[in-house]
Design a binder for these strands. Structure first.
Lengths: 189, 189
DNA sequence: CGCGACGTTGATTTGCCTCAACGATTGTGG
DNA sequence: CCACAATCGTTGAGGCAAATCAACGTCGCG
């Protein structure tokens, strides 16, 4: 799975593939289990083989705010904490029993040294992630809650079917109560 | 200036430096002049030598929403439009008379081919930009307008002194009127 | 079964917006 | 160098989108 994802961007030789695979650690994680908690220093970047994870921050009043979801084929992790080796402000846990693949920061740096074209892969993945965030910032600024919800439905129909509504509400930046009302009333604009 | 910025991340040989410099186009842009408008396809990525630019989107009701500012040493551009060669949703213009350096997408791709370590530079710049966006998304979700303003003051004191308040208000996601009231009343929480 | 997670609905509140009016400053053409 | 417009910031009255708080139904699961 992870090789297939990478092969969409760059082509490994056999040796490179072998080397790459030697760096991976597979892991199972159960629903509700934490991968990281606030204050941890993230040592691994994570690829989701199957299942579903989320990262979220907690504000001063104790409310969760979902930063991202990750299902099959997605990467998840706090790049800030991983890059700077600083404590993360976010929590990462599993919404479903999941199988994940982890690469340590050390091995990642090793990979960049030995297989420079992996830089290209990372750059491209980052570009995509950056674009997604750009859109999210603009949508939060330019659109109403209902419009954001509609866009979410178009962009991630699979997530809508799979992820609890209170989590989606949090991702969209609204309360579960308002989300429920919005859906039932189909508030236009 | 641009070489100094790059040398913080990677080291060019003399030939590479020469090649890199051959790809740059310098340009002056006057206050209020557009670099890109909604619907344009971005062909260049832009580095600011001096002055100040901004990108912003316009919502259905005609209100601006600033996505980013760029002063000396910053890069600016719609990566989505640049990467996919799709029409941009945003406008980029100058808040001050400015001097900028532009690199075309074509030359950028050429650079990636000829100087693979430039991939690394891009990856690192992107990581930083990604982190900044991550923080912005979390702050918008977790903090009140006043808290966001305080954070802005801490992080970008120079911008606060230099950029008109209505633009900062837009960046923070509030109206100029509310921004003014907030400051005068020092609304806590 | 019984408890906790999830969703719904209603009454009330609030953070921020809208609209409108009004100084202060800047800049521009005559 | 002045008149005038445009830009920018401030202040006040009223309004709205979404939050809060609370109660209640339902489902899945240990």
């Amino acid at each position: 799975m992870i090789l297939k994802t990478i092969s969409q961007y760059i082509t490994f030789t056999k040796e490179e593939t072998k080397f790459f695979l030697s760096l991976l650690r597979q892991k199972k994680i159960r629903k509700k289990q934490f991968l990281y908690q606030e204050g941890d220093i993230c040592k691994y970047t994570t690829f989701v083989n199957n299942g579903c994870l989320r990262t979220y921050a907690i504000d001063n009043s104790g409310t969760d705010h979902v930063f991202q979801f990750a299902t099959e084929g997605w990467w998840i992790g706090d790049i800030e904490s991983l890059k700077n080796q600083t404590p993360t402000m976010m929590n990462t846990d599993a919404l479903e029993d999941s199988e994940i693949i982890m690469i340590s920061k050390q091995d990642m740096d090793l990979l960049y040294e030995k297989v420079p074209k992996y830089e290209r892969f990372s750059r491209m993945i980052l570009e995509n992630a950056y674009i997604a965030h750009q859109q999210r910032i603009l949508h939060n600024a330019c659109f109403s809650a209902y419009e954001r919800y509609q866009h979410f439905l178009e962009k991630y129909p699979e997530w809508n079917a799979r992820i609890p509504q209170n989590q989606i509400a949090s991702y969209l930046g609204i309360t579960p109560e308002f989300f429920s009302k919005m859906k039932s009333q189909a508030l236009i604009k």
